[in-house]
């Protein structure tokens, strides 16, 4: 895409956000923020049996880039396993969003991705805590 097409791509995601709104009974809810612009993004994630993302939505407020990036992220992350989420690369994400357009607001551009990565860690930490609790009960 050339610069104009990339710009139109971002504006389309901002003006017609995909997967926007809360999700009932999510497996993970994660909130992230960026003080530079006052951007806030909340991700709702539901996992399938194989720990792949079966549904993902977002809510948020803030600048055009942060909200467009969150919309784009929900499309990219759908169907990915948590391991694949962990492996997602910020540079690739920014490239897909339009590096030239977002270069001066990289924190806004990566807010949703970083929030999803934090969500993955939160879920893993919760899993470990549950396993430890179950082990403690078994050993009691």
């Amino acid at each position: 895409m050339d610069r104009q097409e990339q710009l139109e791509f971002i504006l389309d995601h901002y003006e017609n956000p995909r997967n926007r709104g809360p999700l009932a009974s999510p497996d993970i809810v994660m909130k992230g923020g960026n003080p530079g612009c006052g951007d806030i993004v909340t991700l709702y994630v539901r996992l399938g049996g194989d720990e792949r993302i079966s549904q993902i939505t977002f809510e948020g407020e803030g600048c055009t880039i942060s909200q467009a990036a969150a919309s784009m992220l929900t499309e990219l992350a759908l169907g990915k396993s948590l391991a694949e989420v962990e492996a997602m690369n910020a540079a690739d994400f920014v490239e897909a969003l339009g590096r030239e357009i977002v270069i001066n607001r990289l924190r806004c551009a990566t807010l949703a991705l970083n929030t999803l990565k934090a969500a993955e860690k939160k879920y893993r930490a919760g899993q470990q805590a549950r396993s430890a609790a179950e082990a403690a009960v078994e050993n009691f």
Partner: peptide, 22 residues
């Protein structure tokens, strides 16, 4: 603007953009 892409969504005719960061 604070929101760096507001200008691209529509601006006063003839206006140029100056971004505080860039």
């Amino acid at each position: 603007d604070e929101d760096v892409l507001l200008y691209e969504q529509g601006h006063i005719p003839g206006a140029v953009k100056i971004d505080w960061v860039g």
